[in-house]
Write a protein that binds this DNA or RNA. Structure first.
Lengths: 152, 152
DNA sequence: CTTGAAAAGCAGTGAAC
DNA sequence: GTTCACTGCTTTTCAAG
């Protein structure tokens, strides 16, 4: 779909404050509530708005450790990629998996309650994944900027 | 604050479907709408729920390229870290910045419209950042799992 | 101090223009 | 694209445990 200036305006406001009512939004954008509502619905059905998320502080739930894994796969094994991905997806403590173009193949985020818990996940679940050639782990110290908001 | 079993139940349902009404939620959890609303409010004010986000597909807005930068800082420069972070934060196309414990110092996500746009941002803004000793860039190919949901 | 019921206010929704 | 009316959710209040 075509995203015009009004849509961008709405998206920007939504990113700034997702809790804003459509009535509020409509006033800010300068259109009627009905029109605003219809635009948001269009953006949702067109897949521009992919979802609504509630952000929860991992620390409040006892997840103190976040580790980035950079994994290189064994290219000699057949179907190395597929079998690895399928197995990795099933690990609950793996928050995200991404394929990368560059010196490594896979990037994964792992959360754990503490270092002992992480060590257990690492040994029992991560190292059990098939076709791993090399792993590099980096621990998150602090998040200094996190803009979900796109530079619209 | 203490997060009990009912709170965890609510959080899990919220992560599954952020759009759910508190009335719906109350029925699922088995408490009254009033009580459910009070719990959510408590979780918000206690900082367990850190925010509500509208997820927008970067591609729909014309951001086709996402690059991970891993940056090592020049440790000989005084205040290398602070001046770097301050400058990096100001770049709109830098989505997130994180400090890491390991072989590199900083991890950054950069979004761009296309490769030419990325090249421009890289040369004009990223390389202009102070105290960089080394940069490694990895391009995102595909996102295979992205669970904002914590393993509650 | 916490819970549930009930009432009031207000936003979302859809029809009519 | 706008207005208007209605439905239903959110939010408050109040009484009881």
């Amino acid at each position: 779909m075509r995203v015009d200036a009004t849509d961008r305006h709405i998206l920007r406001l939504l990113q700034e404050d997702a809790d804003r009512s459509t009535a509020d939004l409509a006033v800010s954008v300068g259109i009627s509530p009905g029109a605003c509502w219809r635009r948001i619905e269009k953006l949702e059905s067109a897949g521009v708005i992919t979802g609504h998320t509630v952000e929860i502080d991992p620390r409040a739930l006892g997840f103190e450790i976040q580790v980035f894994l950079r994994i290189t796969l064994d290219k000699t094994a057949p179907n190395a990629f597929d079998s690895f991905i399928r197995a990795a997806r099933a690990i609950p403590n793996v928050q995200s998996i991404e394929t990368l173009l560059g010196r490594v193949d896979i990037r994964m985020d792992v959360i754990a309650r503490d270092l002992a818990h992480y060590q257990q996940i690492y040994q029992e679940q991560i190292l059990a994944l098939p076709n791993i050639a090399d792993i590099e782990a980096l621990m998150l110290v602090s998040e200094l900027k996190n803009t979900e908001a796109l530079a619209i």
